[in-house]
Amino acid sequence: MDENKKAPEFENTIVQIETSELLAKAIELKKQGRRLSQACAAYCEEKLELSYSFADDENFGLLTLRLVLDKETKVTSISEIFPYAAFYENEMKELFGVNIELIEPDYKNKLYRIREEAPFLK
């Protein structure tokens, strides 16, 4: 395929931030009119990696905030800023055992009706 036929590149970056910065960054991105595209956790080498992806519908950008933390570290929920983040955060909490505080609404391990607690944390 020749050069001009290639699909155009869109913003798709991962920025590592501190746990305490998350709320401020989320507010900033909300003001830019972005929406939370997804949030997920990964467990790698005894560390939890949290990814919050914010999508820009105007120009197809995707900015991912990356938090690297220990199992015990507490994270404050962004569900006050993005209400639907509650689903993603409950999912992280139930599947990976991430210590997320102040989720509204907190489903208390009842979003996923599974028997095992934190099955992906291995």
């Binding site: 609404p105 489903y107 009842k110 979003l111 996923y112 009706r113 099955p119 992906f120 291995k122």
Partner: peptide, 14 residues
Amino acid sequence: AIPSIGFVHRGLES
């Protein structure tokens, strides 16, 4: 409405 899922959770991501 309060949803809950996970009745066919198979852990394919794992």
